[in-house]
Write a protein that binds this DNA or RNA. Structure first.
Lengths: 140, 140
DNA sequence: AAATACAGTTTACATCCGTAAACAAAAGAT
DNA sequence: ATCTTTTGTTTACGGATGTAAACTGTATTT
């Protein structure tokens, strides 16, 4: 029972190109993804069509070739995507998971400082311990 | 083209119960999940069977009812799952994504301290800026 | 021993996803 | 104006997933 449209992994790769370029023709997307993956042009076209159906992309059809533009901001998509995954995790394990991500991700000085800041603020009201709720009924 | 078996969201919920209990009978899992979700017992049985096929669970068939045990540690599964998601993200955005998770997750004092520690260590060798590689061919 | 209850296995079915060919329409070239 | 190329749309197909009923074999009750 899917409430909200989600982006598949393959679709996500298409969006990355378009987010980064701001907008793009199908050919730009195809050229770049043919270098990054083994996908055929036809496959990438399918992904573009599906992204339009899901309303993550729209085509400016004023001229041909169409120019595709994102209908969702990259930051919003990231927010939805990572929080969607974290919703599945045991509450008690989220800290561990974040620590794991920090260890395994390249992060800039500036971002590191920002995250430390967020954590420091959070520490002011953080609980001593977070209880596991894996066995409890979700209220709501 | 799937190289490695992955756990679906629904399957993940079953594993959470078994990880938390250490081991469980199908009935224990069913009782708990019927409170947390709208799933029918039959649905949960299907998930258990699929998890066995994927070798995330095994049944101790010495006695009936069978006792199901995890074949993968929760921490390993979390590691795989979150890093699998992060692999899709623009390198440049990983810091933002982590910051977002920190803001939206409840984290214990101890975990906050640990993450700050990891970040502080990381800062010693972190780059000033992480470049976006969204348009580049993946080497490898 | 027969009837019943319980738990594990098979089968089912719609949708999504990865993957891509075939087809159609528009633009460019001759 | 027709041929060709480009680009957008339809159709296709196998496997994964959410969802669950039906079936079967074992254990318990009468």
């Amino acid at each position: 029972m899917k409430e909200v449209e989600t982006m598949s992994k393959a679709e996500w790769q298409v969006m990355r190109i378009i987010w980064t370029l701001g907008q793009a023709t199908s050919n730009q997307v195809i050229d770049i993804l043919e270098k990054k993956t083994d996908w055929k042009a036809a496959t990438i076209k399918t992904l573009i069509i599906r992204l339009q159906k899901k309303e993550f992309l729209k085509a400016d059809e004023a001229n041909r070739p169409y120019i595709y533009q994102p209908l969702i901001a990259e930051d919003s998509a990231i927010h939805q995507s990572v929080n969607n995954l974290f919703d599945d995790l045991c509450c008690m394990k989220k800290g561990l998971a974040i620590n794991d991500l920090v260890e395994n991700s390249e992060i800039s000085q500036k971002d590191i400082a920002q995250i430390i800041q967020t954590l420091t603020d959070k520490a002011k009201s953080a609980p001593e311990v977070v209880d596991c709720n894996c066995l409890e009924a979700d209220l709501k």
